[in-house]
Design a protein around this nucleic acid. Structure first.
Length: 1028
RNA sequence: GGGCGCUUAGCUCAGUGGUAGAGCAUCGCCUUCACACGGCGAGGGUCGUAGGUUCAAGCCCUACAGCGCCCACCA
């Protein structure tokens, strides 16, 4: 063991054992202070993220694991790239959720309610609960490897954060943005608290019943029939409303009806807003205290607000004979009573949306009560502008619309909750009922000076304190250095399900109190679902504990899986096979290192530039591929394309470094050329080291482990003694020539392997024993390359004993052989005694058919004059080259086939370089144009093409610019058209509705306007394009 | 009712106007001196449907169909 606790082994275990390795590193990193962001350090650019705080008493699920993974990827990547990173952890007190958990537990173990304990004692219990379970989240994050700055850990009910909450409340109150009012709110009779609009879940498609009954007129004769989905509320009716223009009821307006159960009398009023004369009977019962629409009607007409359903969901004394009944019982009872009275007028099914409590799923009850509100419009405006101006940007972009739509149609926010667990509202009341809002408990009423004060018993909505999270956690309202350095945060990474609850509120609060957006980018990650695509939920029982997976497959494997599946705009379906696959990937990396360790004898650490160490074409090739991988990974990370980043590294490590380079380099490792071996060692070590770094953000544990192992083995003092202290690979120019040059070698190996595979020749059976495997190449450079040693690699990787390379168009003939052709080369594998003539013919025919199909397609394309004229030159050129290639290939294969079937008479080992007579010439005969004319013609053509291309580019650029405007216009047109359609539809139904005309007219107007604008935009675009 | 997203190989999904891709699964061969958590090879696609724009469409436009999500106070 060295001082870091790493086993210093020359040999690794055969397989990667994640439990053993993962247990070791977290404490090491933390101890070294790698997770800490330095608020004093302004020399490096800052990169900060605040972790969306999970519920303190909860435990992490896969959604949290995804959050932790993606943020850790960003933080570790940025840290390695030289940023001063700070990732702030913490937990949320989660008002209702937590209180309910503790209440449930209390009931289970002690059979007591919170009221039995009293407020103080109950809160003690919750804190105790928090202490007991609060650390679990931290442990889970550590197990996942999250590089969180634990020194800055916060809890929403910490003293500091509570102070921020009071400060915000008082300031908003002083600014008139917080007020207290008695109005209708969504009340959960089960949780016994008010809720904000957002906490209401609308259950769609609920099959309700529209039940009709008659109100007798007070004067004794006549009735008016109303319909309702909630019969029990009729006990609180204080009016019946009809449409003012409805001839059916014109005479009844202003008269009185008598309540058949309570005997109260109330008026029939005319209200054009509430009543749609076409719905139901055209008469609406009005319950101002239990319905949001009716509440407004009540205000408009000065009606009585009669509360008949209490906070407990039972009928109040005002409900008369039904007092004390549960509201659903009361519904049945009301129907029964009215039926008895002969007032029931039938019913019909009516689909409706039911509002349920987000927590308890209880059907909500609109109730009249005193609550605190945030006047939100003034806060929303700057939050809208910030996004419009691009100071905060959403990724994926389409969430911008969602955000905007909600922000523009925002309602005042009810922030008081009738709970005990949370920030108690800093408002005090005196005997006279005056309110004093203050940061600390006041000694006297601000209005009358009374000293007997009682604090408001309610607490604030959990999201009120979470909304302050980006700055309250950094010491606000003090002007701390942490805020100076790390606010605004760089990116907010969270799920799109809390875009309104949290993201929007942070935007508003951050802008209002800090004067700056809380984050520059909002990355909204997908939802994690189970393998069947179902949402994970406790009730479904398909919630997976991330630690279950990490225990089985390793944290690195889980992290990599989540990152690899995180594509923009789609949910993640997590299947364990995926995780298993990435565990294999970890094992692959482990074993590649193991191979290196076994072959590093005599290794000498070179300088910084591995390209200087490279000796062979294979060396240069893998280094080029490595640079491609580095570039691709960084580019993807920068664009938040986590899946692309992960896949890029995965593909490089497994399929290029391991499958190809490791095998190619064996020639050097097992050969006797010390120089080549040293070069291969240098390249391999560099490749592995760079791979560890690329992978580190995704797989921190294994990469740290292997880093130490390899570092110890190569005795490289230049390597920092933790991968976390190293630098991330830098993007840079790719050695394209080296990449391209090696292509034919890979192609030849593929070709021979393919023949082997299709002929079913096992690898252990060496090819080319009696007669050599012939390879013909047309490019002298490739020929030279093969001669310079690559030929031995081909032989090794394809399992060939004797290889003969020719600089020729075709290989020497031999009937007992299989042939494969590629770009610039032909391969002939002698198969004397092995070959199945029919099989080989079939194989060739298949190949020929494919070539012919491709060729036909391309030729047709090229014979189309408008393609040749209008397509960019390089596209045409590429297709022409491809045609040549295909022709050559099919020509060769045809030859071979002819040979096989005995139609050709040429004998073995006579290199054939002429075109056989049965195949048409590959290039057309020269034209009669003189060379000069031809040259001039070509020049003109080229220029023309260039001009066309330039114009095309310009148009494209313009279109790109105009795109948002055009999209907007299109959208408006679409909407207008659909509005018109709807209006027309409505207008053509039997009864000409008054309401229909208005939207139809408005829609027509909009259409006209929008179409005109769209035309203008398009015209402008075309004009500009034509000009070019 | 309004809005958003999705539809590509058996499954899960990438795909940025220019020859349709990956992983898994399937089939064949191979326990070859890093790895069977492995290697090599192969098969498999009318890109939801119908139109349109373009020399060229999986990609852009329109309509339709199916699936999913969010928002919404029509009794």
């Amino acid at each position: 063991m060295d001082e870091n606790g790493t086993t210093n082994r020359a040999e690794l275990s055969k397989g990667y054992e994640h439990q053993e390795v993962e247990a070791r590193w977290y404490a090491f990193w933390k101890g070294r202070g790698y997770f800490h962001g330095d608020e004093h350090d302004r020399s490096r650019p800052a990169f900060s993220i605040v972790l969306p705080p999970p519920n303190v008493t909860g435990s992490l699920h896969l959604g949290h694991a995804l959050t932790a993974t993606l943020q850790d990827v960003l933080v570790r990547w940025k840290r390695l790239s030289g940023f001063n990173t700070m990732w702030l952890p913490g937990t949320d007190h989660a008002g209702i959720a937590t209180q309910m958990v503790v209440e449930k537990e209390l009931k289970r173990t002690e059979k007591k309610s919170r009221h039995d304990l009293g407020r103080a004692e109950f809160l003690k219990r919750v804190w105790a609960w928090k202490e007991q379970y609060g650390s679990r989240i931290g442990q889970q994050h550590q197990a996942l490897g999250a590089a969180l700055d634990w020194e800055r850990e916060r809890f929403t009910m910490d003293e500091g954060l509570s102070r921020a909450v009071r400060e915000v409340f008082v300031r908003l109150h002083e600014e008139g943005l917080i007020y207290r009012e008695k109005k209708l709110i969504n009340w959960c009779p089960d949780c016994r608290t008010a809720l904000s609009d957002l906490e209401v879940e609308h259950e769609e498609g609920h099959q309700g019943e529209l039940w009709s009954f008659a109100y007798p007129l007070a004067e004794g004769v006549g009735e008016i029939v109303v319909a309702t989905t909630r019969p029990e509320t009729m006990l609180g009716d204080t009016a019946v409303a009809v449409h003012p223009d409805d001839d059916r009821y014109r005479e009844l307006v202003g008269r009185t009806v008598r309540h058949p159960i309570t005997g109260r009398e109330f008026p029939i009023v005319a209200d054009g807003v509430l009543v749609d004369p076409e719905f139901g009977t055209g008469a609406v019962k009005v319950t101002p205290a239990h319905d949001f629409n009716d509440f407004e009607v009540g205000k408009r007409h000065g009606l009585e607000f009669l509360t008949v359903i209490g906070l407990d969901g039972r009928m109040t004394a005002a409900a008369g004979p039904l007092a004390g009944l549960d509201r659903f019982e009361a519904r049945k009872e009301v129907k029964r009573l009215l039926e008895e009275l002969g007032l029931a007028r039938g019913s019909k099914p009516n689909p409706m949306a039911l509002g349920r409590c987000q927590r308890s799923q209880t059907v909500l009850e609109p109730l009249l009560s005193d609550q605190w509100y945030v006047k939100i419009a003034p806060l929303a405006r700057p939050a809208i502008e910030a996004v419009e101006q691009g100071r905060t940007r959403f990724i994926p972009e389409h969430w911008t619309n969602t955000y905007m739509a909600w922000m523009r149609d925002i309602h005042d926010w009810c922030i008081s909750r009738q709970l005990w667990w949370g920030h108690q509202i800093p408002a005090w009341y005196c005997e006279a009922g005056h309110v004093t809002v203050a940061r600390e408990a006041p000694s006297a009423c601000a209005t009358c000076g009374a000293t007997a004060l009682r604090q408001d018993e309610d607490v604030l909505d959990t999201w009120f304190s979470s909304g302050l999270w980006p700055f309250s956690t950094m010491g606000w309202p003090d002007r701390t250095e942490t805020l100076e350095t790390f606010y605004p945060t760089t990116v907010m990474e969270t799920g799109h399900d809390i875009i309104f609850f949290w993201v929007a509120r942070m935007m508003m609060m951050g802008l209002h109190f800090m004067g700056e957006v809380p984050f520059k980018t909002v990355y909204l990650h997908p939802m994690v679902r189970d393998a069947k695509g179902q949402k994970m939920s406790k009730t479904r029982g398909n919630v997976i504990d991330p630690l279950e997976i990490t225990g089985k497959y390793g944290a690195d494997a889980l992290r990599f899986t989540l990152a690899a599946l995180t594509a923009q705009g789609r949910d993640i379906k997590l299947a364990s096979e995926r995780v298993e696959g990435y565990r294999s990937f970890a094992n692959k990396l482990w074993n590649a290192t193991r191979f290196a360790l076994m072959n590093l004898e005599g290794y000498v650490e070179r300088g910084a530039d591995p390209a200087e160490a490279a000796r062979t074409a294979a060396d240069r090739w893998i280094l080029a591929r490595l640079q491609v991988a580095v570039n691709g990974t960084v580019e993807a990370l920068e664009a938040y394309r986590f899946n692309d980043a992960a896949n890029t590294v995965y593909h490089f490590v497994w399929h290029e470094l391991c499958d190809w380079y490791l095998e190619l380099a064996k020639e050097a490792f097992f050969g006797d050329d010390a120089g080549l071996k040293a070069a291969a060692q240098a390249v391999l070590v560099h490749g592995l080291k760079t791979s560890y770094l690329l992978l580190h953000p995704f797989m921190p544990f294994i990469t740290e482990e292997l880093w130490h192992v390899l570092r110890a083995q190569v005795k490289a003092d230049a390597w920092p003694d933790s991968i976390m202290a190293a630098r991330y690979p830098a993007p840079g120019p790719v050695d394209e020539a080296a990449d391209r040059a090696f292509g034919p070698v890979l192609g030849i190996i593929d070709a021979i392997r393919s023949i082997r595979g299709e002929m079913g020749i096992p690898f252990k059976v060496a090819l080319g024993q009696a007669t050599p495997v012939h390879v013909a190449v047309t490019d002298p450079a490739v020929h030279a390359l093969l001669g310079a040693g690559e030929e031995r690699r081909v032989a090794r990787l394809a399992g060939v004993e004797k290889l003969a390379v020719h600089l020729a168009a075709a290989t020497p003939h031999g009937p007992q052989s299989a042939v494969a052709v590629g770009a610039g080369f032909e391969v002939r594998v002698p198969l004397a005694g092995v070959i199945d003539l029919a099989a080989e013919t079939a194989r060739i025919d298949k190949e020929l058919a494919k070539l012919a199909a491709d060729l036909t397609l391309l030729e047709r394309k090229l014979s189309n004059p408008s393609f040749v004229e209008r397509a960019p030159v390089e596209v045409v050129a590429k297709d022409r080259a491809r045609v040549e290639e295909l022709r050559e290939a099919s020509l060769k294969l045809n030859n071979h086939r002819a040979m096989m079937t005995g139609a050709d008479t040429q004998r073995e080992d006579s290199p054939m370089e002429t075109t056989p007579p049965n195949v048409p010439p590959t290039t057309p005969a020269p034209t009669t144009m003189s060379e000069k004319v031809e040259q001039a013609y070509e020049k003109v053509m080229e220029k023309g093409q260039e001009a066309v291309q330039a114009a095309r580019d310009e148009v494209k650029a313009f279109e790109k610019k105009a795109k948002p405007a055009m999209a907007k216009a299109r959208k408006a047109v679409r909407k207008a058209v659909s509005d018109v359609k709807k209006a027309v539809k409505k207008a053509t139904t039997k009864k000409p509705a008054r309401k229909a005309k208005k939207p139809a007219r408005a829609a027509k107007k909009v259409v006209k306007k929008v179409v005109a604008r769209a035309r203008k935009v398009v015209k402008k675009a075309t004009k500009k394009a034509k000009k070019k």
